[in-house]
Amino acid sequence: MLTVLERGQTGVGELMAMEGAARAVEAPPLAGRAGGGRSDISCRGVYKWYGDSAVIANLDLSVAHNEFVCVVGPSGCGKTTLLRMLAGLAEHDSGSITIGGVPVTGPLPSVAVVFQHFGLFPWKTVFNNVALPMRAAGVAKDEARRRAEEAIALVGLRDSNDKYPAQLSGGMKQRVGLARALAMQPEVVLLDEPFAAVDAQTREILQEELLGLWSRYKQTALFITHSIDEAITLADRVVVMGTRPGRVIDDIVVPIERPRSVASVRRHESYAPLRERIWERLRTTAQPK
């Protein structure tokens, strides 16, 4: 939404200039990348206004280091706005947002985003899409190539290195999106309804794969979704957002042990009660008072 507003007054060139200013804030040292460091997300009293109405009001949210948190909420509860603020793509109006103790004022190098509509460059092959952020960040060519190839193999697209996004199915496109985020070796991954644009069956396959990937490369993850099942399947903790204004209305630990599979989660004894509780919370927030 903000992009549209911004583009009303500024061209992409000017946006780039603004981003250049934000970039001056450097990220914390990446020494702790291997797992010992702090890469927690913390939002305290965050507000976001569009005109006179608060899209997000007094939002508190924290995600611990190496924790996987899903945010569920009805359309218009500001969950995507929240993710964009965490990604440094939108500004918050008051309160504080920090990642690994660093205030977010622009995109941080330690954070990777997986976009709902994949965000792949149509003129770049799978390999070049995955390698681009590393090359842009100044990673040496050989190193970038090795990491890109590894990440692409990890998501099962080894044979698609030289294909263009238009030649891939939706599920494969989002695998490329995941590979790009993986190859950046981020400390924090933000996923904005990443599986919303693929069909139901592919969605379950991708959830399964994400469970596998995350169980190996545990890192701090915030996953936005409107699917209760998806949230329970993937998350250590589910945060429920209410609408008008967007705020946290429930915060539930998912007591299902890992490793998980989509099927094992469904069979788990706490699955039905959890689903019931989240659904109840969403139902009441969606109703006009």
Binding site: G20, R23, A87, P107, V113, F115, H117, G119, A136, A137
Partner: peptide, 13 residues
Amino acid sequence: ELMEVSRSLRLNR
């Protein structure tokens, strides 16, 4: 969205 992705990937001008 691609412009947003470029910002997110921290591409310079």
